[in-house]
Design a protein around this nucleic acid. Sequence first.
RNA 1: GCGCGAUUAGCUCAGUUGGUAGAGCAACCCGUUUACACCGGGAAGGUCGUAGGUUCGAGUCCUACAUCGCGCACCA
Length: 731
Amino acid sequence: MIEPDIDPKLLKPYDPKETEDRIYKMWEESGFFNPDVCIENGIADKNAETFSMVLPPPNVTGTLHLGHAATLTIEDIMVRFARMQGKRTLWIPGTDHAAIATQSKVEKILDKEEGKRKTDLGREEFLKRVEKFAQESHDTIVTQSKKMGASLDWSREAYTLDEERNFAVRTAFKKMYDDGLIYRGHRIVNWDPKGQTVISDDEIVYEERKAKMYTFRYSKDFPISISTTRPETKVGDTAVAVHPEDPRYKDYIGKTYTIEDFCGVKLEIKIVADNSVEKDFGTGALGVTPAHSQIDAEIAFRHNLPTKQVINEFAKMTVGDERILNKKTTEARTIIVEWLKNEELLENEVEVDQNISTAERTGGIIEPLPKLQWFINVNKKIADRDDKTLKELMLDAVRGGGINIIPDRFEKVYYNWIENLRDWCISRQIWYGHRIPVWYKGEEIYCGVEAPTGEGWDQDPDTLDTWFSSGLWTFSTLGWPDLNAPDFKTYHPTNMLETGYDILFFWIARMILMSTYILGEVPFKNVYLHGLVRDAQGRKMSKSLGNSLDPLELTGKYGTDAVRMSLIIGTGPGNDTKMSEDKIRAYKNYANKLWNITRFVLSSTEFIKYNDDFKDYTERESTLIEERDALIKEITKEMEEYKFYLVSEKIYQYTWSRFADVIIEESKDIFLNGTETDKNSRAQFLLNTLTKILKNLHPFMPFVTEEIWSLMPISNKKLLIVESWPKSTSL
RNA sequence: GCGCGAUUAGCUCAGUUGGUAGAGCAACCCGUUUACACCGGGAAGGUCGUAGGUUCGAGUCCUACAUCGCGCACCA
């Protein structure tokens, strides 16, 4: 049955290796990833509806993992669908400098390979190393993204730390500074002794551990016992707080006790009454350490208590005699507990579960310290924004319906986060990042987009939290601060922000903050949150478990289309996806099935000339078309509702179980025994339906569909990537 | 402590406004003069986490509870 003039390619199984790079190159050369080119070529009307989206910029800390592959796939599906609908479609690529993450990665490499620390190199030389590393990571990321088939407009690629973005950052900072939203303050901050920097509340990861809670008195004649899991901080206590209504301690309120020798340290302890103390917790009395606890600092503020720092940036003791001075906090703890025992001051010790704060990036145990840092005030009323605070702006953006979050249960999570939000600490004591645009000269302070003129100005040595620049991403990539930049005018607010739910607070919330404040408009109209990619047993993929799958290895083995399908099918928004090689294999087979379907269809319909407008279908084909078009209608609606997991499965189902197993099978009989009319009708139908399958499937499996498309006997073909999404209006 | 999610065939998941359960993978049987063995045909497999409730009717709605996972808060 196979005619000799069919493309010989089709005689062999589908070979993604031979196909994918060639196809991607063809797309790139066409320029169709760029909406301007699409308009020039009449693919999108110059006034067509827009669809714009930024790619969540991957951190330049190495290579892409399956989570990135999932992001790229979901977004590429959205983008290809929009493009096929004739929209002016823009998808912006970029990478994130990821300040702390990148710097600590390079520090590790430097230590491992050369046994050096960053201070051995100095700021300038160290930064060169980081930049080199970042560049290499960037190149890998770009190659991998292309391998996934992502139809990103590379001509608009951006970096969170490049010139344009730096200018945007300085402009945004200056505006916030002038509006009094950015301030410098002496506060208890989260200090990471390992990374030697401050971090924000959101960069803390809690780890549950067993700890000992000790109950003791400062001295024999001190009237109240207190409990703590950190006895070493007690050398910094300046008060004991009790509940005002607690009859046990009422008589002591207001008195001050001097403890001459607490393991070599003299203490002045005042008894204060504070409503924040719970009577029923522990002894009902709380030793107040204003310098090393956020809550204690608040109590100290209310009662005007002195603050006494006893721990430094290296988590070592700064007071006491040789027993504890310069000792690590953990060593000092043991020593003080021993001392309490010897002095018979320790009343009991109990094992408790404790959540310990660690730094997300370095794993260091957080040491609360009083430090002078830069903050964003989230509770200050902003005159330009109807006297709303940043918190209120962020709340209103979602509550008012300007931003729609999918799945919507995350809206609650978002509200909850905002309600608990405190001022955002934005300064970091690391070298890699945007330098704070503030200069000092003696008592003078200057904030500006450019450095001040004149002699003797020193720039603040700190850099900004990486999320500060990420927060500007939807508009800093579109030409802002130039409000007349064509991209900014055309594509902002963006239509969609698609990312993993794990960075809802880190990133999405910050973009909403920046955009509603700076521009007075939302950064995006829709948020689509996908889940984590897990292994077949549902475990998180990690190097230590040895269960992580490398996307490049998988695409090499099974083809990109198969990997994409397996990342989509069975994955609703907000739910985690389980990945296994078995699953990918199934879709590799599917790509090949499609290939063989094509082989049959092309070779058995060579006797006709394909006519896209063919009308003389027999009864049988008319029924089949009705069925097919009902499906197209259904999946088009689901595409618009972002239900890609349903669409991909339905197309799979139709092509395999219906088109191949039933329709093609019965076609064999028709071509053998049918009338000329029957044969014609069937041949036209097969070709017509195959073209529709290819179009519907293209966003999901772009490579194999584009390759087959090139073999189709259709006149006036464009590349499939810019063909029109099928309308279900035929007949 | 507050909140969220999950619980449906061995595994992964669908199940739209309530009408007595579906798909893929795996396993089982049969089949290669066939577009495709990266295949076809067939059969098998579920008291829908538990207990109540609403309803003519519940996998679907309501209430408890259980197990797992997650977020936030607390963490003296």
